[in-house]
């Protein structure tokens, strides 16, 4: 045989041999060291909406599906965007009792629109709430309120938030209650409430009544009228600001009627 053929054959045999060894090693090891993955994870994953919003408290839909199988006692009703149908499907897969999902909706605890309050500085920096709030607590007179640069609107996966009249508004019809805006807002003035409860306090100002009133016409002045009117003791004034306990609230709307500044609102 000529030398070149031998050299070629040697190369082919050596490389093919190494390849074969690697192949056998991999296929054998994948057979013997396979990690059993629960097939229910895949099933549950298919039931979930796949928006990866993180409202359930896990890292995306995959994380929630894994936690449902692997972590004992994970609730089946944590997917807020998926609501009851998804919870029903998950309970079917797992064979546990169906749990009702409390649908949540985001709301802005501020009504300091252009008519009610004004700017204290002419802010020229980067137009985001995160940047503006670093600069003396924002450009608004009220340092607790919405600055209206729309960080929440930019992160909203369903485009349910818009900036109107200088402040953020959440559209409760399209909001899926994922809570991304809640963690995004540097002022922490967006919160989630159960969709069935309609009353909320549209103010976050913790200043004393007179000070708050000077900064914004729509501010809560902590007069406690709502607290006295509430038939179920659901509303309390703490730190000059009224707060609703949604486990007690019956959405009668009496507090909104008596509020002198109109900072308690009813969403339609």
């Amino acid at each position: 045989m000529p030398d070149i053929v031998i050299a070629l054959l040697a190369a082919v045999i050596v490389v093919a041999g190494i390849g074969l060894l690697c192949g056998i090693l991999l296929s054998v090891s994948s057979k013997f060291m396979a990690v059993k993955k629960d097939e229910r994870i895949e099933k549950i994953r298919n039931c979930l909406p796949g928006a990866n919003c993180g409202a359930c408290g896990f890292a995306g839909c995959d994380g929630y599906a894994e936690a449902l199988i692997e972590v004992e006692g994970t609730k089946t009703n944590l997917c807020i965007p998926g609501a009851d149908p998804v919870s029903q499907k998950i309970s079917d897969v797992l064979g546990v009792e169906f749990e009702d999902v409390v649908e949540m909706v985001a709301f802005v605890q501020c009504n300091g629109n252009c008519a009610a309050t004004s700017k204290k500085t002419d802010y020229q920096g980067i137009k985001t709430c995160a940047a503006a709030s670093l600069f003396y607590g924002g450009d608004g007179k009220c340092t607790y309120g919405c600055m209206g640069y729309g960080d929440c609107a930019s992160i909203c996966p369903t485009n349910s938030i818009c900036i109107e009249n200088g402040i953020s508004h959440v559209d409760p019809r399209t909001c899926i209650g994922c809570g991304l805006c809640v963690s995004r807002c540097p002022k922490g003035i967006i919160a989630l409430k159960p969709t069935v409860k309609s009353v909320y306090v549209a103010c976050s100002n913790k200043d004393k009544g007179a000070v708050a009133r000077k900064k914004c016409k729509n501010a809560c002045i902590g007069c406690k009228k709502c607290e006295m009117t509430c038939p179920t003791d659901a509303i309390k004034v703490e730190n000059n600001l009224s707060r609703i306990d949604y486990s007690k609230c019956v959405s009668c709307g009496k507090c909104a009627d008596v509020c002198p500044t109109g900072c308690i609102a009813i969403c339609k």
Binding site: A10, V15, I18, C22, G23, S30, M33, A34
Partner: peptide, 27 residues
């Protein structure tokens, strides 16, 4: 005398090896 096959063999071996290590680590 196959020094000229170095690149191909190394790629092959490293790729298989990393896959193998991954399987072992996972288990």
């Amino acid at each position: 005398g196959l020094e000229y096959m170095q690149t191909i063999v190394f790629i092959l071996v490293i790729a298989a090896l990393v896959q193998f290590v991954e399987i072992v680590l996972k288990k």
